[in-house]
Write a protein that binds this DNA or RNA. Sequence first.
DNA 1: GTAATTTTGGTAATTAATTACTTGAATTAC
DNA 2: GTAATTCAAGTAATTAATTACCAAAATTAC
Lengths: 132, 132
Amino acid sequence: MSKIVTLTEAASIALHGMIIVAKSEKMANVIQIAELTGSSKHHVAKIFQRLVKDNFLESHRGPTGGFTLKKAPADVKMLDIYESIEGKIEVTTCPLDKHICPFDKCIMDNVTRKMTVDFRDHLKSHTLKDYL
Amino acid sequence: MSKIVTLTEAASIALHGMIIVAKSEKMANVIQIAELTGSSKHHVAKIFQRLVKDNFLESHRGPTGGFTLKKAPADVKMLDIYESIEGKIEVTTCPLDKHICPFDKCIMDNVTRKMTVDFRDHLKSHTLKDYL
DNA sequence: GTAATTTTGGTAATTAATTACTTGAATTAC
DNA sequence: GTAATTCAAGTAATTAATTACCAAAATTAC
């Protein structure tokens, strides 16, 4: 089964959270980001650990600690943030792979394919700089 | 958190399965539908129990049994099948509800909203008759 | 009527996403 | 140096989707 693209809470935390960090004068920490995005701090912590490992963020412990960007906002594509959390977007038309589908013409008529392509293209054509 | 629309395996089984029943000369049963859609017969059985309860299908037990349509193909909207399994589609723009989002402008720029609307409109504008 | 077939319904196992908790390590402020 | 703060990391609980298994009820074929 192929998965149709969607925007999960995890990816939403990553995308919004990175913008919050980018816009912050001081360092932004887990609790602030959890409050601003309305998510659990545990979930934010997990997501941000991945973003640190994937070199999008630098973490700083201790009081006044938090996260800062590792690269310039213009150099961080939104798509890269998304794929850091969700894995590479595969463009598919339907959960039924073509080789198994019993119908000549896809019943989704490429609507789901277009959804995925539009979603990916939007993330690909924007960087953090666009949201400062 | 709001959920962005997607096409799950469950909904895919319902949509494809209903078309398979509509196209069948004889009755289509769980095993045939599972084979044609490449899904587990258990999952198909669960999905079809719901479609029977929601009055899309009539079930027939015993040898030569299976499922038949309860209504004429032209009277069955694809959207109704989808929503029987997934619940009513709510058009949302982002997992972050507007009242919590810390940004003036939605970072998804209505891409996710458009995804949902296009998806819903496609299902709304087709009936089983379109796939016979 | 008997046997085979098929749906029904219930329970449980599995996987993934999310939430929760806890301990430890690093850092800052004092 | 001590205490407070914050991230790191691991484990576990929860929820939902999917898969699996099983016994019961209904129906057909013989």
